[in-house]
């Protein structure tokens, strides 16, 4: 575990610039330049083909988003007219802004609460020795692997009949204040990599455990915190099942993921507008990715890891 972070792009910003396996340190003689050229062509031809597979769906969605109604369901792939107004139409659809606001509330507040409440738990699980710790870690993992559908029936009854909170996003946001298993798991994995000496030094300086955590460990864990926050934000942003259960009966509480689907219903299947709405839901995620690419990739690597 302890060596993982130094293999991440943070210290090796361009992993691909390192010598790739199989091609490493190979004496060029037995193959010669021609073989190397052929390999370059083969690899890049494949890469271009794969890139087409990954990128073309985006391209078609974008092209359809700027088509006129009448063209959207024809076999013409290139827009005859460029209807940039479609985005405006979608943006001005009653409800669209509400969905944005709700999604930001759910994702924003949910992330702050989930990360905030998970930090001390992950810290305790990584740094304290106590009986039952392994058992608790197993419970965290079990909860992490649990599909939300398993407990949805009693949870729904709890939130709607006991607390009268159906038709709002609170049943989705409030539980975030009680530790999120995935966030706890990832943070704990990262905190294990920070040597005990740091916290011990802090304690000798007279810091309490809480201050040791806040003053010494958290600043070191900044990249991991960024990664888990991003993951959580995207989890909420993408969540469909939660809003479908709790918020669906009140259009004022819909999120983008839930509203997007109904968009097609209300617009009688105007695919151009539906695709424009799709673009507007995908765009923020992609913009955030470009700003936070490093944190993201580290986060993904953190999930799968221990050599």
């Amino acid at each position: 575990m302890s060596t993982r972070t130094d293999r991440l792009p943070r210290t090796a910003p361009e992993p691909t610039s390192r010598t790739a396996p199989g091609t490493a340190g190979r004496p060029p003689a037995p193959y010669g330049r021609r073989a190397a050229t052929l390999e370059w062509i083969a690899v890049h031809a494949l890469a271009v083909a794969a890139a087409l597979f990954f990128v073309l769906p985006f391209v078609f969605v974008l092209l359809t988003a700027v088509m006129s109604d009448s063209q959207a369901l024809t076999r013409d792939l290139w827009p005859n007219t460029w209807e940039w107004g479609n985005f405006r139409t979608v943006w001005e659809t009653p409800g669209f802004l509400t969905w944005w606001r709700n999604t930001l509330l759910y994702a924003g507040l949910g992330t702050v609460l989930a990360v905030g409440s998970s930090i001390p738990v992950a810290y305790a699980l990584a740094k304290f020795r106590f009986r039952g710790r392994n058992l608790m870690m197993m419970a965290v993992i079990a909860m992490m692997m649990l599909p939300p559908q398993v407990v949805i029936v009693p949870m729904y009854l709890f939130w709607s009949k006991q607390l009268g909170l159906s038709g709002t996003l609170w049943p989705l946001i409030v539980p975030m204040a009680f530790g999120n298993p995935f966030t706890i798991f990832l943070l704990r994995q990262f905190l294990l990599t920070i040597p005990r000496e740091y916290t011990e030094a802090a304690r000798i300086d007279g810091c309490g455990e809480f201050r040791a955590m806040v003053r010494v460990v958290l600043p070191m864990a900044r990249p991991a915190l960024a990664a888990v926050a991003l993951f959580h934000f995207f989890y909420c942003w993408n969540d469909y099942f939660g809003p479908q259960i709790y918020a669906s009966e009140n259009p004022g509480a819909w999120t983008l993921s839930y509203g997007l689907e109904s968009f097609k219903g209300a617009h009688q299947t105007d695919w151009n507008l539906t695709m424009a709405a799709t673009v507007l839901v995908m765009a923020p995620v992609i913009v955030v990715f470009f700003f936070a690419q490093k944190a993201f990739i580290e986060g993904v690597t953190l999930t799968g890891v221990k050599g």
């Binding site: 769906p57 993921s257 799709t278 995620v285």
Partner: peptide, 19 residues
């Protein structure tokens, strides 16, 4: 390029694929 589709929100990605 290869990574980007992973980020597409599932509802949006699914609707795009149905289209």
């Amino acid at each position: 390029f290869f990574y980007l589709p992973y980020l597409a929100p599932p509802v949006a990605a699914t609707m795009a694929f149905v289209f």
